[in-house]
């Protein structure tokens, strides 16, 4: 493998990780959606570059799906939801941005520590470490945000990490990628419907309202 190919793949995966950290730091919902769209585009580039490196044209399909569905359709739809629901507010976080960033950095360190000594080629290894970090950051985002829309984005970002991990290793069949893409789309549809239903019933998309409705929310949370 030539070094320039390796470096570009590395750059793109690293870019995804930086964007994940940026997602954690955003304070406004529109900005979160934009950063997510940017991450999906970087993912598409990364997958396309992998397709070129591995001589696997079917990865191009994955890249196209990522670009069109996650980079364009979903962010557009989310922005529409936000506008229609009129929630251009600040993201309500459970933990302040500073500690969240620190936790995120610790997670990145953990994933590198975990995968650095493992077997396999350098590229696969680094790629997997980045992907694991993106997955963990997505999870972290899901549990540190109160707003349903930002939770959806955390979940989508997690899926981005999964796709990055899957395409980084050689020989993943197209069927898997397509099914992953569809599952994301369906999850998005389900989430979207849920968000509207929540809004209709509770006049807010703060998931704390659901907890309150279940009668299980404690006031100190």
């Amino acid at each position: 493998m030539d070094t320039i190919g390796f470096d570009i793949a590395h750059l793109l995966s690293g870019g995804m990780l930086v964007l994940s950290l940026l997602l954690l730091f955003q304070t406004r919902i529109i900005a979160v959606i934009n950063v997510f769209a940017l991450q999906a585009i970087v993912l598409a580039l990364s997958v396309a570059w992998q397709a070129y490196l591995q001589q696997a044209p079917h990865l191009m399909v994955t890249a196209a799906i990522a670009l069109i569905v996650k980079g364009l359709i979903i962010p557009f739809a989310l922005q529409r939801i936000v506008r229609r629901l009129d929630i251009h507010r600040e993201v309500e976080t459970v933990i302040a941005a500073g500690p969240t960033m620190l936790a995120g950095l610790a997670l990145v360190a953990l994933s590198i520590l975990l995968l650095q000594p493992s077997e396999g080629s350098v590229l696969t290894r680094e790629d997997l470490a980045f992907a694991l970090a993106v997955i963990l950051l997505g999870l972290l985002m899901m549990i540190t945000r109160r707003n349903a829309v930002t939770q959806i984005i955390g979940f989508m970002s997690l899926e981005n990490g999964l796709i990055l991990a899957a395409t980084g290793s050689r020989g993943m069949p197209l069927v898997v990628e397509i099914s992953v893409a569809f599952s994301i789309l369906i999850a998005f549809v389900v989430f979207g419907i849920f968000v509207f239903r929540i809004r209709e019933r509770f006049d807010t998309v703060d998931v704390a309202a659901i907890d309150r409705f279940r009668g299980e929310r404690r006031e100190h949370l």
Binding site: V94, L139, L140, M142, I143, R146, V207, A208, I210, D211, E216, R217, L221
Partner: peptide
């Protein structure tokens, strides 16, 4: 709460 369950998993 749902978020607490997610935190447990995480």
């Amino acid at each position: 709460t749902i978020r607490s369950y997610l935190t447990l998993v995480f």
